[in-house]
């Protein structure tokens, strides 16, 4: 690197929330951040030992842990309020001010998007939502690549403000630890809550994540079931387990009560290496959330199913025949 390399003095902050588990989306953010400059992390709570070890492995020397006034937090409903976008946003802004960072990276969850927007608002920063790639131009300005219109267009935009705040979608890069691990220190970061918050969390029930399967938004392989399952997700889940995939659904299947999370424009947006849709017609709303997948495969009984228009490989057939046969063949191949 030359001495006038703009990356050398850059500090990139990565939002790690929650700080109680290592998420692959966070490891991706840390990997991207290291490519931009020095990396520091921001948390809303004490990181667990595992999280700290991972942060060290990914080159993070400093974790800025928010210290929110307890009375303000109590007024907002206690511990559950810690993850409100207004609190996270205020924390990110405070961390930027303390560190003089010029880049903030956050994952692409709804909550993180809002927090990123609120931080960018008070900082006068440029905001990019759901970048698929992050780099810089010759002038040292942050440049983000985005996939839009259901993955049909590639756009690039530069951040013209001094500070860039970006949310980055999962599967943008392959996580890579630093060349050598570093010791990680946790620094308390005093955060004043914005007076206008006014929002009180009166109840909060944290959702369990299925421990045996990768999470939908982060998985490299996703198998999704739709109305064509007729309500039986058994074949979809068994096939998913044979290929080590996360399971998702169409919105219709979720509205029927057959599954809990759906993929699509208003559900989870995914961009895995492989997407397999079974008994899903491929409505534009659904496509909007998965069309950026690298390889798209479908199983559908209708030879005219619209999803075939965007597939790399497809089987016209009954998913209750096709999926179990495929799962068995994959297991046999693996055991061979």
């Amino acid at each position: 690197m030359s001495t006038n390399d703009p990356t050398r003095n850059r500090t990139a902050l990565v939002l790690v929330d929650p700080a109680t588990e290592v998420r692959s989306s966070v490891l991706e953010l840390l990997t991207i951040a290291r490519g931009l400059g020095r990396v520091e992390a921001v948390t809303l709570e004490a990181p667990t030992v595992e999280v700290l070890a991972q942060l060290g492995a990914y080159g993070v020397e400093t974790v800025h842990q928010a210290e929110v006034p307890t009375d303000a937090l109590a007024a907002a409903g206690g511990d559950g309020a810690r993850h409100l976008p207004s609190v996270v946003g205020a924390t990110l802004a405070a961390a930027v001010r303390r560190t003089d960072a010029d880049v903030v990276l956050a994952p692409a969850t709804f909550g993180a998007k809002e927090a990123a927007a609120l931080a960018a608002h008070v900082l006068g920063a440029g905001l990019v939502i759901d970048a698929a790639a992050v780099g810089e131009d010759e002038a040292g300005r942050v440049v983000a690549g985005k996939r839009v219109f259901a993955g049909a267009w590639d756009t690039r935009c530069v951040v013209t403000a001094d500070v860039a705040v970006l949310t980055v979608r999962a599967n943008a890069v392959v996580p890579e630890p630093a060349a050598a691990p570093v010791a990680t220190e946790v620094d308390p970061l005093p955060v004043a809550l914005p007076g206008t918050a006014g929002v009180v969390v009166t109840s909060r029930e944290v959702k369990e994540r299925a421990p045996s399967r990768p999470t939908l938004e982060e998985a490299a392989v996703v198998v999704a079931g739709g109305r064509g399952t007729g309500g039986d997700f058994g074949p979809v889940e068994k096939f998913a387990d044979a290929v080590g995939a996360a399971v998702g659904a169409s919105r219709d299947a979720v509205f029927e009560g057959w599954f809990d999370r759906y993929i699509g424009q208003t559900g989870v947006t995914i961009a895995p290496r492989l997407y397999v849709g079974a008994g899903i017609s491929g409505a534009p709303h659904h496509r909007g959330g998965m069309q950026a997948s690298q390889v798209i495969v479908a199983v559908n009984a209708d030879p005219e199913a619209p999803i075939f228009e965007i597939c790399d490989f497809a089987v016209v057939g009954d998913l209750t025949d096709v999926l179990p046969q495929a799962a068995a063949a994959i297991r046999a191949h693996r055991d061979a």
């Binding site: 009954d318 046969q325 063949a329």
Partner: peptide, 18 residues
């Protein structure tokens, strides 16, 4: 798209593709 019509071997074809 590489389209296979299932006549009893559709699942195997899917596995082979993957």
């Amino acid at each position: 798209v590489e389209l296979v019509v299932d006549k009893g071997e559709g699942g195997t074809a899917l596995a082979e593709y993957l």
